[in-house]
Simulated assay, not measured.
Amino acid sequence: MKTVAYIRVSTKDQNLQRQLDEMKKFGIEDKYIYEDKTSGKDMDRIGYQYMKKSLESGDTLVIKSLDRLGRNQNDIKTEWQYFKDNKINVRVLDMPALNIDYSKGEAIEGLHSMISNIVFEVISWQAEEERTKIRQRQREGIESAKNLGKHLGRPQLNLNTITKYQRQVLENNYKEWKAKKITGVEFAELLELKKNSFYKIVKEYENTLN
């Protein structure tokens, strides 16, 4: 029987170190710590699926909080039932009342089980509500940006947004290209531009020469 941990943050820019430190304090070896840097909107995550496949009856899964499993209440319920059905112990560090423990036979039933189920329903609901709020804030932010006329997505590529290096390459090689001493493909590669962007920027540059 082994003890494994699952840690997760929602984006690649976020840091897993705090959760990692908690798991190491718990005595879990690095090889048994599975991680993801992605949204909890569903369970189709590489680290999570590897962790789940590694679990056997009698093993223990440790998580920092219930929302590290996910943000969808139905998905969380399904996974929780999977752990119960397969007699996998679960330790929730931030909410011990949710712990599933088969180490001394069957998990505790009765009043403790009822309280645990109530707490689980509340916490899993809160996890999904938080995801709903995040999505709402994102929609409001996008709508606000549109109303202000802001461009969303990648910055538009044009003569004014290329780097100083690209501008220098353009100026140094433009006459060579016009004289057909280098091809358009070679010129675009020197500028590190795709075909459409290359011709667009060259045209803008030519307009400055007139």
Rank of each mutant, 00 (worst) to 15 (best):
A107R: 08
F187H: 11
M23W: 02
R18E: 13
S103L: 02
K203H: 05
D94V: 04
A127S: 07
N158L: 05
V4F: 11
K52I: 08
G153R: 10
G105M: 13
K175Y: 12
R137K: 13
M114W: 06
K37G: 11
M23H: 00
K194I: 10
R8D: 01
I33F: 02
P155K: 13
M51L: 14
I88S: 08
E204A: 03
H151D: 13
N210L: 05
F83S: 00
K84S: 02
D67R: 05
M1P: 13
Q156E: 12
W177P: 01
Y102C: 10
Y205Q: 03
A188S: 14
K200Q: 11
I142K: 10
V9F: 02
K200C: 05
Y48L: 15
L55V: 05
Y6A: 04
D13V: 14
S57Q: 08
A145Y: 03
N173D: 03
R131V: 07
Q49T: 15
Q49R: 14
L69K: 11
G47E: 01
L66H: 01
K180D: 13
W125A: 15
G153A: 09
I28C: 09
W177E: 09
T60E: 06
R91H: 00
Y174C: 07
M1L: 12
R137C: 12
R68H: 03
E186F: 03
L152E: 10
Y32K: 11
L148A: 13
I108V: 08
E176C: 01
N74H: 05
M95D: 12
R68L: 04
K133W: 06
S113A: 14
E109R: 03
N147L: 15
L111K: 12
L190C: 02
I33R: 10
K31P: 04
G153L: 00
T3H: 01
S57R: 04
S54H: 03
K41R: 12
N207E: 11
E79R: 01
L148S: 03
I88H: 00
S103M: 05
Q166V: 02
Q168M: 00
Q138D: 10
V169L: 09
M23V: 04
N173R: 07
G149M: 00
G27R: 00
L111G: 12
E29L: 08
T11N: 06
D67E: 10
Q136T: 14
I162E: 05
D85K: 10
S57W: 07
A97Q: 14
K64H: 13
I142A: 06
R68F: 06
I134H: 10
K52F: 04
S144C: 09
I7H: 03
F120S: 14
K178T: 07
Y205P: 05
K64A: 11
L16A: 08
R71D: 04
A107Y: 11
S39A: 02
L191H: 07
K133R: 11
D44A: 04
Q156Y: 11
R18M: 13
Y174I: 10
T60D: 02
I142G: 06
